[in-house]
Structure formats: C-alpha cells, structure tokens
Amino acid sequence: MSMPPAPQPPHQTPLSLWGAPPPAPQEKSRVGLMAAIIGGVSLLIVVLLATLVLVGKELEDSYPRAESSLTVPRTLLDGRFTLTKDDSSTLGRTLQRSWRHSWDAEAVHGVVTVYHPSSGERGELVLTGMYGRFKSTDEVRSRVLADNGSKNTRVKVLVPPEDDMPPGSRSHISCEALTRTWADGSTLTYPVCAWADGNTWARVADMTFLTSMDVDLKTAARTTLRIRSEVVKPIR
C-alpha cells in the first residue's frame, strides 16, 4: 500500500510583499539620507565661508592704503608753538579704543598733544587726531567736530561748522567757533578746525588769547592747513 505524498509547505511569500521592507534595504536608505543631509550641510558651510572671505576681502580693499601717519613735532608754525604735553600714550589710546570698531576706520592710532605759544602768550593749541585707514572722510570730519561739546556742558557752539578749501588744499577743512565757560565765570571764544583724509584726521583747537580776540574761521582754516603739512608725514 503506497503512502500518500507528503504535504508541501505553503509557498513562502517574501516579507516585503506584506508591506514591510526588508531590514537591509531600510538601513541603507537611512544611511543614504543621513549622508545626503551631512553633504548638504557641509556644502552650505563651505559656501558660507567662501562668501565671508570674499566680503572680508571686499571690505579690506575698500580702505585706502596706509601711506602717511600723524607725527608729533617739537614745534609748530615755524616755531610759534612749542610742544608741552604729549598724551598720545594715554588719552590717545583711549581715543583709538573708541574708534576701534568703527565701520569707516581701521588700524587706528590716537594722537593727543598740547602746544603753548613760544612767545609766552596766554592759552594753548590742542591737536587731537588719529592715523590709520579711513573711508567716508566727509563723515569722519563731521563726526570729529560733533564730538567737541558732546561731553562738556561748558562748551557751546557759537558758529556751526563751515567747509573751506584753502589754496593748496586737496580736501576740505571744516571750522567752527566754540565758547567755553570756566567755573569762575570766565569765557573764551576760539576756533576749532578739522581735516580728514584716507590716512589721517585731526582736530585743532586754537585757544590762545590773541586768536580769541578775533575769531576768523577762514584764517583758522589756512592755519590748520599749515599745521597739517607739518604733522602729516609719509610712512617710510
């Protein structure tokens, strides 16, 4: 008597046909997705860094070359004024710290000096300035004069800034007249002039007695131009 044939096992349907993907392809899919995300982020970082480098280079190129600096001569105006105080190492550093993060200034160094008349005349000439690399020089010049009385309530603007271009000047010089009052009630009216170029700016306050007797802003501008020619020197 023959035995009936053994029952055949039911056909094995792959698990993927029942809606569940096989484990190995699923893992590969996740790895590929992560690789794509990481690759995209890396590319974005590279593009961002390249953009920052290009922007930095463009900003660097927008500043003029450093070709001249602001010096501190022993005398000014053919010996009419003699240097009596050089506060560049103290007040000058304070000044440069306040300009260090300005958008229109780079590599700045502060200069603060006081000169007295060699003749013994009363009063003093104060030169405050900086050298480095500057752009938007018209705005720099305006800012320099605007700082005159901003922190001193005893200083008032008598005549607002006027632009002048004396003969021989390649840039404007701005001058204003200020009045200063001391605690004892005494007052002094004097001119203050400023220039600004690609490498230097300076504010000159002529607080001498004779100048205060006749404040002439055009004369003050010409005097400032002469001072500029004596203190601005090429970098060697």
Rank of each mutant, 00 (worst) to 15 (best):
L54I: 03
H109V: 00
G132M: 06
W99P: 01
H116N: 09
W201A: 06
A36D: 06
V231T: 13
V114Q: 14
T181N: 07
Y115G: 02
K218E: 15
T189Y: 10
I37M: 14
V204P: 03
E162I: 10
E162R: 12
G56V: 00
A24Y: 01
G123V: 02
S69L: 12
S150D: 07
I235A: 08
H101W: 06
A183I: 02
T153I: 04
V108D: 12
A194C: 08
S119K: 04
L49M: 12
L210T: 04
A107N: 13
S229K: 15
H116L: 08
T211P: 02
T51D: 07
S150K: 09
D86W: 10
V159F: 02
M207E: 15
T13N: 13
E124L: 09
Y131R: 05
D138E: 10
V215F: 07
A177E: 12
P117C: 12
E27K: 12
S88G: 04
P4D: 14
L125Q: 02
V46R: 11
V192H: 04
G123R: 14
A105C: 09
D164C: 01
D78R: 13
D147E: 13
A36M: 13
W103H: 06
G185N: 05
S89Y: 01
A35M: 12
L43S: 13
M165F: 00
A177P: 02
A35V: 14
V144G: 07
Q26M: 10
D61A: 13
G198F: 04
D87N: 09
R143Q: 06
R30V: 12
D163I: 00
P73H: 14
A194E: 08
S142L: 09
D163A: 15
T208Q: 03
S16D: 13
R65I: 01
N152L: 03
L83R: 05
E139V: 15
W201I: 11
E60D: 12
L77G: 02
A24K: 06
M213I: 04
S102H: 05
T219M: 09
P23L: 13
M130H: 02
D163L: 13
C175W: 07
S69I: 11
V140Y: 00
M213F: 03
A66V: 00
P9R: 01
I235F: 04
T71P: 00
L127M: 14
D86N: 15
R228W: 04
R143T: 02
E67L: 07
S150G: 00
V231F: 01
V46K: 10
L188D: 05
H109C: 05
I227C: 03
A50Y: 08
V232C: 07
S68L: 05
G185T: 01
E124H: 02
V140N: 05
D206C: 07
E176N: 00
R141F: 04
M34R: 08
A183M: 01
V114K: 11
R80G: 08
P10Q: 10
V144N: 03
T200P: 06
G40V: 15
S68R: 13
K57G: 08
V144C: 05
M34F: 12
H172D: 08
Q8A: 11
T211Y: 04
E60H: 08
K28I: 14
M165T: 10
R222C: 03
L158P: 00
Q8E: 14
K28L: 15
L33K: 14
G56Y: 02
A183K: 04
